[in-house]
Simulated assay, not measured.
Amino acid sequence: MITTRLIVDNNVNKTQAYTQAVEKLIQGEIVAFPTETVYGLGAIATNEQAVAKIFEAKGRPSDNPLIVHVGEAHHILKYVKDIPQKANDCIETFWPGPLTVILNAIPNTFAPNVTAGLSTVGLRMPDHPIALELLRRLGQPVAAPSANRSGKPSPTTALHVEKDLQGRIPLILDGGATGIGLESTVVDFTVDPPVILRPGGVTAQMLRDVIGEVIDPDTTTVEDETVPRAPGMKYAHYAPDAPVFLIEPDHEAVENAITSIHMKHQKVALLAPDEFKQYHADWFFSLGNQQNLETSARHLYAHLRSCDDTVTDIILVTVPIKTGVGAAILNRLEKAANGNWWHS
């Protein structure tokens, strides 16, 4: 299969790019496109054969549910049994944006491989002009996980998608780098109080400011025998080739870790705030300022992917404080490291 990457900006014929993408989707093909979080790999959510191509291209287990994307908020009325008031308040506040709401689906609305056999479905309206234009021109719901090989860091540029899925998908809409860099927050509104299933750009405090109590469980994994209710709750995710170890942002601990790794004649890549650059890691990838976690989130996946372009033996990543978007960053890091912390 030949993979075409179409740049969508003011210097090309946008209509032609969108028309080609819509035609591919209607024909039962899959298309990668940018959202404000990461690049998604989409198929029409009512077409089981098309959705199956997502799992095939990604090498993704089919028991992981997919998020359904819509171009207009009111479209979800066609897909769910009811919308609780708290869910409606969050939709009005955060859509379009990085919030996925879990609601009870109308039976037989979506392809069964979208919901992984669950009675619920995750829905969101992305805040990206290309994603919204594509969805509105198509006029149908699109199931779309991140556009990467399963288990690898999510793609924040079209080139990341191309590297992972070249020859596996027919079309990539290239809209440049994404803005947030981490997947959406997933909240289960089928229970009250609502439960955060995956932290993201819409933080627990932002939700509480709108609807009051929200349960934010301090867990990153579920038992393998359970069926996950949202993407990212099962299996290792976001991992580069070299093993990832997490470490507290303590200067002495980081310096000692790098020294210990070098004494074993191994190379180390360090992802950390700028102030840690002084410790002579073989490769240093800046996570910016410890007080600006949005910058860390935006660059995290790109830096993890850049480690694959090195010959590092170990990747050390300092962890953020678990407030605001720091909770989402820590969630992704614990999965990338498979729970491994550095101990000297």
Rank of each mutant, 00 (worst) to 15 (best):
M1D: 09
I2Q: 12
T4K: 06
I7H: 09
D9A: 01
N10F: 08
N10A: 14
N13Y: 05
Q16W: 11
T19S: 15
Q20W: 00
A21T: 06
E23Q: 15
K24E: 15
L25V: 01
L25W: 00
Q27M: 12
E29R: 01
T35P: 05
V38A: 10
G42K: 11
A43N: 01
I44P: 06
T46C: 10
N47R: 14
F55E: 06
R60A: 08
S62Y: 09
P65G: 11
I67V: 12
I67M: 13
G71V: 13
H75T: 12
I76M: 13
V80H: 14
N88H: 14
D89N: 14
F94H: 07
F94V: 01
P98W: 09
L99N: 11
L99V: 08
T100Q: 10
T100M: 10
I102M: 06
P107T: 10
F110E: 11
A111P: 00
N113L: 00
T115G: 08
A116K: 07
G117D: 07
G117P: 03
G122H: 15
P126V: 04
H128R: 04
A131P: 00
L134Y: 00
L134Q: 00
V142W: 13
A143H: 05
P145H: 01
R149Y: 09
P153E: 11
P155V: 05
A158G: 02
H160Y: 12
R168H: 12
I169W: 04
P170V: 03
D174A: 00
G176C: 03
G179D: 14
I180M: 02
L182G: 02
E183S: 03
E183A: 02
V187I: 07
V187S: 05
D188Y: 06
T190Y: 02
P193G: 06
P194E: 05
P194Q: 01
V195W: 06
R198G: 01
P199I: 02
G200L: 02
L207I: 02
L207A: 04
G212S: 13
I215T: 11
I215M: 08
I215K: 10
P217F: 00
P217M: 00
T219S: 15
T226W: 15
A230Q: 07
A230C: 05
G232V: 11
K234I: 14
H237L: 12
D241K: 13
D241H: 12
P243V: 03
E248A: 02
E248L: 00
D250S: 00
A253N: 05
I258K: 04
V268C: 05
L271F: 02
P273T: 08
D274M: 10
E275V: 07
F276N: 04
K277G: 08
A281V: 08
F285I: 06
F285M: 08
L287M: 12
Q290R: 12
Q291G: 01
N292M: 13
L293P: 01
L293E: 05
S296T: 03
H299L: 13
H303Y: 12
L304T: 09
L304F: 12
D308M: 09
D308C: 06
T310D: 10
D313K: 08
L316M: 15
L316Y: 14
T318L: 09
P320Q: 15
G324A: 13
A327Q: 15
N331T: 07
R332T: 11
R332Y: 12
E334N: 04
K335T: 10
N340C: 15
W342G: 08
